[in-house]
Design a binder for these strands. Sequence first.
DNA 1: GGCAGGGATGTAATCGATTCCACGAGTCCA
DNA 2: TGGACTCGTGGAATCGATTACATCCCTGCC
Lengths: 341, 341
Amino acid sequence: MAGIKDVAAAAGVSVATVSRVLNGHPSVSAEARARVNRAVETLGYRPNAVARSLRTDQTHTLGLVISDVLNPYFTELARSVEEEARALGYSVIIGNADERPELQDHHVRNLLDRRIDGLLVSPTDGGSPLMLDAARAGTPMVFVDRWIPGVEVPVVRADGRGAVRDLVAHLYRLGHRRLAIIAGPAATTTGSERVEAFRAALAEHGLPLPDAYTGQGDFQAESGRRVTEGFLDLAEPPEVVFAADNLMALGALDAVRARGLRVPDDIALAAFDDIPWFVHTDPPVTAIAQPTGELGRAAVRALVDRIEGRTPRSVTLPARLVVRRSCGAPPTPSPVQRSTS
Amino acid sequence: MAGIKDVAAAAGVSVATVSRVLNGHPSVSAEARARVNRAVETLGYRPNAVARSLRTDQTHTLGLVISDVLNPYFTELARSVEEEARALGYSVIIGNADERPELQDHHVRNLLDRRIDGLLVSPTDGGSPLMLDAARAGTPMVFVDRWIPGVEVPVVRADGRGAVRDLVAHLYRLGHRRLAIIAGPAATTTGSERVEAFRAALAEHGLPLPDAYTGQGDFQAESGRRVTEGFLDLAEPPEVVFAADNLMALGALDAVRARGLRVPDDIALAAFDDIPWFVHTDPPVTAIAQPTGELGRAAVRALVDRIEGRTPRSVTLPARLVVRRSCGAPPTPSPVQRSTS
DNA sequence: GGCAGGGATGTAATCGATTCCACGAGTCCA
DNA sequence: TGGACTCGTGGAATCGATTACATCCCTGCC
């Protein structure tokens, strides 16, 4: 493969001049510039990004460590992150932590070794020493969706409290009084926040959230199934199950169906995180939709701000309720926003 | 950040010795090794992968360029690719081509500039000059799922012909005679192959595939919707619509539902590419399932074989039919394999 | 006419590792 | 005893770029 020296030789100039042409440095004669460009063209020369990175200490690469690539929410997040990064001249390396802290650490270490310019993380747990050290050592870093309290790192996330309140109001209006939740891992902020928001919203209607109605899940479908079975085994099962993410909702749907019960007639179902498939399930699932694409873009902008010396800002965007049929109401016009497709 | 020189100084040895310890070179005294390891530990030293890559001309990175990250099939493929690559000591950079040739080229160029060790591609089109040049220039490369004929590159893919024949037999047995297909782009191998397999299977039953029943899609949901609307507008609409991928099936489902029609009573539906969500749609969708995870792993193994000097083999694995309710049959035991979950 | 200033260019140091080669010391065997 | 060999080690070249610095030449102004 042709290197910068070959180009210099072919153009009859020094490597310094070639480099200047390549980087748009003003101080090059039009004549030399033309000769270099011609040589680049004929040799099919492409600069070696590895060498360039070593010298400039910039890789123009961002790391993104997410909890579960198979979760459509994170897939969409990853997609929007890549798009925005590309628009700003960066590439993205994605690490899938699969909700496993040690895998998360593996990816963080690997990305750091590769000297990425900045790190976007949706932490699986409360934060490993490795990640905290990196943040403290000054690695540009931004949390998306989930975050770790007490660390000086900007956070880009959605606030679901308003939407959860809307959801509970909607359920209350439909006559439901026994509401249960499948929570996410308490170690994640999204795991605990959603339970708290739910509990607070229930309290507004004078409803309790008994322990028996608080199931512990792990954001994966299987745990949703397991917890739901537990609910159904209760002497007095809940009338509604609210899953703190989409995969657990899927597991819940399975569990209900496996008993020969029907949604919403026998039990209602709602989920946090809307995804395109919820329109097509039987029945369509009422869900809380995050502005996922906007979150990804905002996170990249914050990270690049940090990298390029500007001051990054934390961003919180509102989530919104999307009413479908899984809680019993026909999706007729109502004060609450309806599904649009 | 500490460099190898710092470690050498702290351990009282030369950088050469540090490097030898780091790379497990045998010719180092136990004593020196211990001192180096201690210094590495206390300094928290991590080798700079960029510098290492420059020197060794290996990045231990694979590029994966896929057509659409939002398609669950490719998401799962990407996941299995990353897993297998990690197991073999490689990282993966994913490029999302979004079915756009120019974006595909952008990613290929970017990955080549970064000097990835090998490239895994599921080509969006018939192959750009850039990609063909790279293959010819000796860049280790493997095609997954889709491929480009006439290029000396191993291919890892699923053969759907048997499963399509099973599907058509299944439909025939249910009494369906007017079968239509939503095809993928003719420029992709999967686009044209699936139509051919379908046509051949129909022929075995003496059934034609009229032009009016061959709709042109682009593997995205919207095109499935559009083509299906066309089918429904025909004087004699088909009894079955077979979508050549999952997203177009989703679009078809939408179109049918928008007309107030029901699947499978008014029209039957089947899809190529099974995904977890098809179990939960209304009705559950009969689909042809590829061994996606195995494809991803086989592709990585082939690519790494090529990179490490062994001879890579092309791999073709069979797809299989998964019968659910969208074609009208109750999923009772039958010679054809049933859905398992 | 001489000198300051600025533009175009080349030489060489540099980034952080790996690795070839040389060298000294120790071992073995003739 | 000495040559051949091995082992542990360090010095220095190298990978392919960027860039500080020096140099040269031209222009403009006093």
